[in-house]
Amino acid sequence: MKILLVDDSRTMRNIQKKVLGDLGAVEFSEAGDGLEALTAIASTPEGFNLIMVDWNMPNMDGITLISRIREKDKATPLIMATTEAEKSRVMEALKAGVNNYVIKPFTPEMLLEKVKTTLEKLKAVA
């Protein structure tokens, strides 16, 4: 499976890579902001099986990225992983089209569990 990790912190992308590597054979792509993510998406015609999106990033933030992706793509699983923890932010992200929401800081188990259940739920619906 192909996963795109979008976060301005490389440390955070590395941590997510380590945790999500447990999902099986995963090919990771990375982007440091929303604009880089849109470029990565445009140059990957086969698409991603999952995109992890941070909220606070330079150039284009995560909530804008989510809206841009969902303009044409309603299907790719999107999970927001962010320090933004207010209910209003979670609601805003859900409205923009994320499939799940992970609040930083997280333990490896918390992150893996959220990702697994999200992908399984979407598979069951499909």
Binding site: D8, N56, P58, T83, E86
Partner: peptide, 25 residues
């Protein structure tokens, strides 16, 4: 890594401080 630690500390506190506060990069 130092920046991301600061980001998480600030973000974790922010939710208890205001309904419409933003944190910087």
């Amino acid at each position: 890594a130092v920046g991301e630690l600061a980001n998480m500390i600030a973000g974790g506190a922010k939710q208890h401080l205001g309904n419409a506060a933003d944190i910087s990069i």
